[in-house]
């Protein structure tokens, strides 16, 4: 048995023990679905970052950085972190205020419409399944490469772990195991990236070496490597901007992100958490970026770029650090899988079954069957982690993001408008993704499914709302949402929360200075 397999098994046992301990304390539906709405800031920050950082960061994003898209990837990453600030202030607080168990339930309550709730449920479950599939394939690929065990068996083993944690301990267990896993992969990435750069001769030496690579011209230029994704720098930057919007939407409105807000102990926790989450995600992307770029010093022609950090763990880093990093990467995948699965179960029980009794049992049964279906899909289809992951993000941006914000900010939007917008965005994004693939053509970056999906959503929402009238129930539901609860009016809490939000401006300054010192100055030298 190799050392990596031992590390993975130990981590699996720890997660299972934590799942059992927490599961025994889960008594009510409130505990199971929303962790009793008592989660402190640490658990919200840990769980949101862990849900965001799936194997996609360590496999997908690392490959893009390694292949020469440093600048477009940093544009994407920094654009997306803003989604946490907007998501918390303009959507998450209201979600918690509505006291619902699922986001489709929120839409149904806000618009007094079962049709809107059903559509949101269907799109939500499709998004989750798409994401769960991507994560399962990522976990299977990673585990198989590092342990030598068959890919399908790896998927089965990891599935047993995350299905058990989720079914047994619900949202409460997911929040805690997510936070443990977040600590593990964050610590591992900080140490690993420092050692990768140090062993490569320091960051300045890395920059000097990689900028002279003949096979990756412009790897650190403002437009990235023009021989990789698009043949022009402008197009590469445009790609970063488009996917920046996609992932910003995911961070703002993605169900596996915004659902955490329903579990926070109060609205101040939601707002304050967003600052730490934004900083944490920026830092993790930056560390992944500099570590992956630095790997070009060791080998610039690695045949499978998506496994470059696995290669680093096994060949470059000291064994113990490699074991911790790989266990951390696996933890990132499992933490995302637990979140997706718990949301699928919650939606099946609360939005489809909708009974008053035995909802936890229904939720557990649906989690079990969905995980079996996704496992079969993951085993029978070739791994396409990044493609599937980006497709899931596109559905969120096109179908949900405009609806989430319109439901809070717009007085004129109606249930018909929301329904038409969601549907048009969803179908538009599917067609723009599937038809070009079927015809074997590639569309220009400005006709990306996200752009078309969001545009169709907004147009359909506008037309649908213009042709119908806002009902008194919809007016009342929105006004109720906009009233700040008495429990949130403590002047001291408000003062501190406002200070946190002002610190976002400081975060912008920190990001600019970091980019100047890490990127601009070294490449100008």
């Amino acid at each position: 048995m190799n050392i990596y397999l031992i590390g993975i098994f130990i981590s699996f046992i720890i997660y299972l023990i934590v799942g059992v301990v927490i599961g025994r304390k889960v008594k009510t539906a409130n505990d199971f679905y929303v962790a009793g709405r008592r989660a402190p800031m640490l658990l919200i920050v840990g769980s949101m970052i862990a849900s965001y950082v799936s194997t996609g960061l360590f496999l997908g994003d690392a490959a893009e950085f390694y292949n020469g898209l440093f600048s477009p990837m940093m544009i994407l990453s920094i654009m997306q972190v803003v989604g946490y600030i907007y998501g918390a202030i303009f959507f998450g607080r209201y979600l918690r205020r509505s006291e619902v168990y699922t986001i489709p339930e929120f839409f149904g309550k806000r618009f007094h419409s079962e049709a809107v709730r059903k559509l949101a449920t269907i799109t939500s479950i499709i998004m989750m399944i798409v994401y769960l599939l991507s994560v399962m394939q990522g976990i299977g690929t990673l585990m198989s490469v590092i342990t030598g065990i068959d890919y399908k068996l790896c998927i089965l083993l990891s599935l047993i772990v995350f299905v058990f944690i989720t079914m047994f301990s619900g949202a409460k267990g997911v929040l805690i195991t997510d936070t443990i896993m977040f600590s593990l992969f964050t610590g591992a990435l900080v140490i690993a990236s420092f050692l990768i750069i140090k062993n490569a001769g320091g960051w300045n030496h890395v920059v000097e070496t990689v900028t002279q690579l003949a096979d990756k011209p412009g790897i650190l230029d403002w437009g990235g490597n023009t021989e990789y994704l698009y043949p022009s720098k402008v197009m590469n930057v445009f790609w970063g901007l488009i996917y920046g919007v996609v992932w910003m939407s995911v961070c703002m409105a993605g169900p596996w992100q915004s659902s955490r807000y329903m579990m926070a102990k109060n609205e101040h926790t939601i707002i304050r958490s967003s600052l730490y989450i934004a900083f944490g995600v920026f830092l993790l992307e930056l560390l992944t970026g500099v570590a992956s770029v630095s790997m070009n010093v060791y080998t610039s022609t690695y045949a499978e770029p998506s496994k470059i950090l696995i290669y680093a763990s096994m060949e470059v880093l000291p064994t113990i650090v490699g074991v911790i990093l790989l266990t951390g990467v696996l933890a990132a995948g499992i933490s995302s899988a637990t979140t997706f699965l718990s949301l699928i179960g919650s939606s099946c029980a609360n939005d489809i079954y909708k009974g008053k009794r035995n909802t936890i049992t229904i939720s557990r049964i649906s989690m079990f069957f969905v995980s079996i279906i996704v496992m079969i899909l993951a085993m029978t289809n070739p791994p396409q982690i990044r493609v599937i992951l980006y497709f899931g993000g596109t559905i969120v941006a096109a179908s949900w993001m405009p609806a989430c914000f319109a439901s809070i900010l717009s007085k004129r939007v109606t249930k018909t408008g929301i329904f038409c917008g969601m549907l048009a965005g969803f179908i538009g994004c599917f067609i723009m993704k599937l038809v070009p693939d079927a015809l074997g053509i590639s569309l220009p970056v400005y006709l990306d499914p996200t752009v078309v999906g969001i545009a169709l959503n907004l147009i359909a929402m506008f037309i649908g709302s213009a042709l119908t009238k806002v009902t008194p129930e919809e007016v009342e539901a929105r006004q109720k949402l906009l009233v700040v609860p008495e429990s949130e009016k403590n002047p001291h809490d408000i003062k501190i929360t406002k200070r946190y939000v002002r610190c976002t401006v400081l975060l912008g300054l920190i990001i600019t200075l970091t980019m100047i010192f890490v990127w601009v100055i070294p490449i100008w030298r």
Binding site: I78, V237, I271, V501, L509, W519
Partner: peptide
Amino acid sequence: MELIISISLGLWVALAGILGYLHLRKEYDK
């Protein structure tokens, strides 16, 4: 160009803080 991108990204984040702050102030000071 690299400098412009770095500054723009910082401003993008700062803008979120300003808009968020204005929205919160409006709601809390009602």
